[in-house]
């Protein structure tokens, strides 16, 4: 039992799966943060349309909690983007992750902050987990600095990979199972109304105008209720993993394209974390051959 526990949670593994997620997450965050660039002054500066969250409660810290000037906002945002790029490149990794977390929380409390949304919470958890993960131990600028090649690698603990994969599972199962009792998820109206709501997209608008009865929406809701928890568990079963990943990918793409809720797309590359790291390592070696050494690099310093 102890062996299973240690093997599952704590064994040393190649870092490639987590490194791939690190790169994908960094690129995703660059896009996410990049979308705000044209409106930085109005979103985050003293010339903006904002209500700082903590300024009333802690006026003595107004230097940090009040909105900065537009110039300072732009400088802070440039540092923020550099930190995010640092995540993707694996450059000064811990500093970059810490900077990304700190600046994103700072910007969040400044602006017309939405409620702490599910996707932002999961993103923050992923960043916190990555902070101590060693995800920069291969395919990174830091590894190049340490050993002379980005393809060199050092073993890391599997724990961060497990935490992110389990959180994705927990989110999917929770989302799926609660639909079984939520009163507003008993019939197809939830979809019918959502497709013509403020979350509508050209695709959902087109779909809502098709001559479909509400019964067809009921069927979709029933399918979602069955498939979500089932496919969430299936992510851990090797034989059905790939179809489950395909199902979830399709679901997340549909949520993005039919409800304009695109922020969950960062989960798609993270599905690689459901594969054992040794399997991902073997796949990388098959793909890139001897450029990726079979053994971890031994550092002399």
């Amino acid at each position: 039992m102890t062996n299973f526990w240690d093997h599952f949670w704590l064994r040393e593994v190649p870092p490639h799966a987590l490194a791939i997620v690190r790169i994908a997450l960094g690129l995703y965050l660059l896009v996410y943060a990049g979308l705000y660039i044209p409106n930085l002054s109005v979103l985050f500066s003293s010339d903006g349309f904002l209500l700082p969250l903590y300024l009333d409660r802690f006026p003595e810290f107004s230097l940090f909690l009040a909105p900065p000037s537009p110039l300072v906002t732009h400088i802070i945002y440039a540092v923020f983007l550099l930190c995010i790029a640092g995540i993707a490149l694996g450059a000064f990794f811990r500093f970059s992750v810490f900077g990304t977390i700190a600046i994103s929380l700072y910007l969040w409390q400044l602006q017309l902050h939405g409620f702490a949304t599910s996707y932002n919470r999961i993103l923050l958890l992923c960043l916190l987990v990555l902070l101590f993960s060693g995800a920069h131990r291969t395919l990174s600028f830091d590894q190049w600095r340490r050993s002379g090649s980005i393809f060199h690698w050092e073993p890391i603990s599997i724990l961060p990979q497990r935490l992110i994969a389990l959180q994705i599972t927990a989110t999917f199962i929770g989302v799926g199972l609660q639909k079984l009792w939520l009163p507003l998820w008993t019939k197809g109206e939830v979809l019918a109304y959502s497709f013509i709501s403020r979350w509508t997209t050209p695709l959902s608008r087109w779909y809502s105008r098709l001559p479909l009865t509400i019964a067809s929406y009921d069927v979709v809701v029933i399918l979602v209720k069955i498939l979500q928890p089932t496919a969430a568990v299936g992510l851990w079963i090797p034989r059905v993993r790939l179809p489950c990943i395909a199902l979830w990918t399709m679901f997340l793409l549909l949520v993005a394209t039919m409800l304009s809720i695109w922020w969950f797309l960062f989960i798609i590359p993270a599905f690689i974390l459901f594969y054992e790291p040794e399997t991902v390592f073997s796949w990388c070696r098959t793909r890139y051959g001897d450029r990726i050494p079979k053994k971890p690099v031994k550092l002399t310093k």
């Binding site: 702490a116 927990a170 929770g174 989302v175 939520l182 507003l184 939830v190 109304y193 709501s197």
Partner: peptide, 11 residues
């Protein structure tokens, strides 16, 4: 909060 998106809708 990480497992509770889209619980309701408006009419």
């Amino acid at each position: 909060g990480m497992m509770a998106p889209y619980q309701t809708y408006r009419t």
